[in-house]
Design a protein around this nucleic acid. Structure first.
Lengths: 234, 234
DNA sequence: CCAGATTTGTTCGTATGTATC
DNA sequence: CGATACATACGAACAAATCTG
């Protein structure tokens, strides 16, 4: 590996390999073994191992003794549902389907600039849609996506994980702030709950694996008695 | 390190070192350097390093180049507040103070046995108290603690992290399920909110670092406009 | 400010164990 | 059983951060 930077080799390698996945050069499935990667990049086996261990912790790959190292399918249900903590009471992740997409492209407002770390003249796509659990309305979602990162927005919006993938990004960490609000009609109607219902407001920012703020989403969700919000801490 | 088990050496070492902290043999502050630990346990430097790296990820120790490895003070504010995701709107963790403790010792009921993984005749301590942010009531908490793990329950209950420490345990991961409920008088009164207020119900199970379920807590919290719940996901 | 000692961080190499095919 | 690939463990060398005198 050419040494232009003083940054640790295994981190540079991590970024290079992550880029191969993000760009689509490496698709879900097996990749070269540790020894071949070490030769290809001119680093030691331990360095390759450290980079791959990191990527496994980030859920980008899975390593299996005797089998090999595999790029994960980010669109698999358990991976793409990790940015929504809502579960049915028996712990099952919700089925995701979407309705009523509405998209516009405009200059970012103050909140969008603050949440996404944008500049004065940066622009965003705004998407409003209804997230369904099967045939039951679950959450009204308002997305803001920087046009600088999302070049290609199709007419019908797929899951955000897929949308990120189509734009050469892999999603990493996210943080979500929860508050309570009385639902406005624009929320209670699509959710088909009474006008004065109290709903969870989920203010979420999602970063890419390389640390860029890529998605801001406001979610409005009436848990009812069928759903819970599941948080883990350590 | 004597090899009685087929379990990886670095995991055995991890447990041994964790036990030194849990038992109080190692108090917050510097510990022996990697080389000395390797000699003491008869393992290689890399094995010590792997065990300590794991313990750092678990936030049990902090490692600093040129300085050494330090046992963390689990009662420090940033560490003991990690099991409560409630923040003020400006992101500050809440000040924790407690009121109105009420303790009883009794046989575990069905829910307690299920949440804590207890047997038919196991017993628990039940503690109800009011968590304050400064002088403002924040959350009504109902704790259930297995008597098998908590031998020594003082009259005035300190923070659960301290209570665990006094009983030779270090807390690790926790999971929390959130639902919404209309506050019962037993909740709305101490919180001094109206009777029909909707509150967050926080159903939390905390594990020790060695993986035992140690604490079940039901929390009842009225966020209001001053507080938010902060969740992270990856 | 520098020189040297100490400690963790990174990188290399090698050998052996374990899981899978 | 043998071949392959990841997992563990050891050892050694140098780099980078920190502290001391």
């Amino acid at each position: 590996m050419t040494k232009f930077s003083t940054r640790p080799l295994y981190l540079q390698l991590h970024d290079a390999l992550t880029e191969r996945v993000a760009s689509g050069q490496w698709k879900p499935g097996p990749i070269a073994n540790e020894g071949n990667l070490a030769r290809e990049f001119g680093v030691s086996l331990g360095t390759v191992r450290k980079a791959l261990d990191l990527m496994e912790a980030e859920r980008l790959v899975t390593r299996r003794p005797g089998r090999g190292t595999f790029v994960n399918d980010q669109t698999a249900h358990d991976l793409s549902s990790r940015f929504c903590n809502i579960r049915t009471v028996d712990g099952r992740p919700v089925e995701r389907q979407f309705r009523v997409d509405k998209t516009e492209e405009t200059r970012a407002n103050d909140v969008e600039r603050e949440r996404l770390g944008l500049g004065e003249n940066d622009r965003v796509y705004r998407i409003r849609r209804l997230r369904m659990d099967g045939d039951r309305p679950l959450m009204v979602e308002d997305f803001s996506l920087p046009t600088a990162l999302f070049l290609d927005i199709p007419d019908t919006i797929p899951d955000i994980v897929v949308l990120a993938q189509q734009n050469g990004m892999v999603l990493g960490k996210a943080a979500e702030r929860i508050t309570l609000e009385v639902a406005a009609p624009a929320v209670s109607k699509p959710l088909s709950v009474p006008d004065n219902s109290v709903v969870l407001v989920l203010d979420q920012v999602i970063h890419t694996l390389l640390g860029r703020r890529a998605i801001w989403r406001m979610g409005y969700c009436h848990l009812g008695h069928e759903y819970t919000y599941l948080a883990e801490m350590s």
